[in-house]
Design a protein around this nucleic acid. Structure first.
Lengths: 152, 152
DNA sequence: TGACTCATGTCAGGAATCTAACATAGGTTG
DNA sequence: CAACCTATGTTAGATTCCTGACATGAGTCA
């Protein structure tokens, strides 16, 4: 390997570290979800619907960090598979409120257990106080980035 | 919007928050890099080469969080554009040590300024102590995830 | 009322990434 | 030495995701 102990500051960048942690988390989640025939985006969609029934396509897209076009095709798949239902007509406006079916809820249950184990593993070795601190810090980063980006 | 103040714990998940922050960072970086005709992966590749000249294709891939196949096509593009150079023959084994050209270094300079401004904005409102704490915490998360995933 | 703006759902095309596969070089172990 | 295993570079095919575009419904304002 070429990596000698040269003075590189990429390893000191919080941005790089953030990406590294996020990448590791995603990889770990994909790994435990694959045997269940699921992936991170599918899980995120179902989890969002479990916690906030009636979310629209666009709202799910924002919550799962994909475009609404991508979420649309995912919802069509989930609908075809019988995991979610959407009314044929929009009760108001154009938004179609989506809901989990019992089958979707069952799939989510399995996945939730797997994902929770990953998150527990991620927090191994961190005290309650550190977790609270991590929460505050990550929220601060998100807000700073959104303010600086969307507000300018 | 459908989001009432219902008791949802996705907002309390450190994993979700980690993804949110990482997503915001990536979006902010893409935004400032786009006017420069660059994207996050290209920037990561050039930055890695600046800090560790002679990295191989596979090492760059790992550092930029993509597959070595994806990095390979990127390197071919960068080589065609004159941003990097690779020897025609591997001096040892099969690894082709890659290096920045002066032109690649110039492109990186521009991008670095833009990216640094994003990172500075992200750290706005965080004290030195908090940044150190963030560093420790993110590293702890990464390590816990890799140990639990690759070691099992 | 009518024009404007904004958000949504949806379809089509393209760009980026990944998975699968093969050949080669180096180290390891019998 | 020979067989084996691992890591690398590379190509090709498939998949995923995004960008662009259009039509519809709701709210705003003159």
């Amino acid at each position: 390997m070429s990596q000698s102990g040269a003075g590189v500051d990429l390893e000191k960048s919080l941005g790089y570290l953030l990406k590294e942690a996020s990448s590791a988390l995603r990889a770990a989640m994909e790994e435990v979800l694959r045997p269940l025939g699921m992936n991170v985006t599918r899980y995120a969609c179902l989890e969002l619907l479990a916690q906030r029934p009636g979310l629209s396509n666009s709202e799910l897209a924002r919550g799962a960090f994909v475009t609404r076009q991508s979420m649309n095709v995912l919802l069509q798949t989930l609908e075809r598979e019988g995991h979610v239902t959407r009314p044929a007509e929009a009760p108001v406006g154009r938004t179609l409120p989506t809901r989990l079916t019992p089958r979707g809820r069952r799939s989510l249950e399995e996945a939730s257990v797997a994902v929770r184990s990953v998150e527990v593993g991620m927090l191994a070795g961190m005290s309650e106080a550190e977790q609270s601190e991590a929460f505050r810090i990550l929220q601060s980063m998100s807000h700073s980035l959104c303010d600086g980006s969307g507000g300018a």
